[in-house]
Amino acid sequence: MKSIADINAIREQMRSKVLIRDNAKEGETHVFVGMGTCGIQAGAVEVFNAFVDEISSRVIKNVRISRSGCLGDCDKEPMAEVVLPGAAPVVYAGLTKEKVKEIVEKHILGGNVVTAYVTK
């Protein structure tokens, strides 16, 4: 049985998550990197920063990089979800800096999903 304080906490938590998603501008690509404990252990912080490096060094506009909670499959971390404007979310697993480079080049810039890294 949850207390009123718990329910309020859940409501506020969901509201802040919705707020972050709603703040995304139209036409903006969004990258969510899974930052649960299992993700952090597997290298999610490095993957997050690899996305930052690739996006900033190529001066790509309209890309937002955020953390998310655990993406649900600890064995496949580090994972990230890439959402292009008007497209369905694509979840990548087992990421490395090299794979991030490829995803930025082919998917975010080229619009082609890198199917080899998509989680099954």
């Binding site: 703040n23 990197v33 930052m35 912080v45 997050f48 920063n49 937002r64 990089i65 955020s66 953390r67």
Partner: peptide
């Protein structure tokens, strides 16, 4: 590297 993970928040 750790701090900017929370950039949006």
């Amino acid at each position: 590297d750790a701090l900017i993970v929370f950039w949006q928040e």
